[in-house]
């Protein structure tokens, strides 16, 4: 970490992580009941919440936000490969259909 005097509020981020997780659970529980969201909408919302939580952990707990850019590039490299792989998998899936 480059700056020790400007540390993020780790406890507050933890509370956000817990809150977002509980929101996801709540969403999954009520989406089939009184809250009429199509299933794909629930999936998108819950995975969006998971991605937000993962970003919070990576940026503030793993310090990617303040650390050297090289580390962020290393962290992003597999994501590029994942997008390519997912693209290939789903394009072949569509072709087969």
């Amino acid at each position: 970490m480059t700056s020790r005097s400007l540390q993020p509020n780790y406890l507050l981020i933890g509370i956000w992580l817990a809150g977002l997780m509980l929101l996801g659970v709540l969403l999954a529980e009520v989406s089939g009941g009184w809250l009429h969201i199509p299933h794909w909408g629930t999936v998108m919302l819950i995975l969006g919440l998971s991605t937000t939580k993962a970003l919070l952990v990576a940026l503030y707990y793993m310090h990617l936000e303040s650390d050297r850019r090289l580390l962020a590039m290393i962290a992003l490299a597999p994501l590029v490969l994942i997008i390519l792989a997912v693209g290939v998998v789903f394009s072949s899936h569509l072709v087969r259909l």
């Binding site: 997780m21 996801g24 999954a28 819950i46 995975l47 919440l49 998971s50 993962a54």
Partner: peptide
């Protein structure tokens, strides 16, 4: 982070 994705995939969705 891995669990953050596994939990909804296996338990919620």
């Amino acid at each position: 982070i891995v669990w953050i994705f596994l939990f909804p995939l296996l338990y919620l969705l």
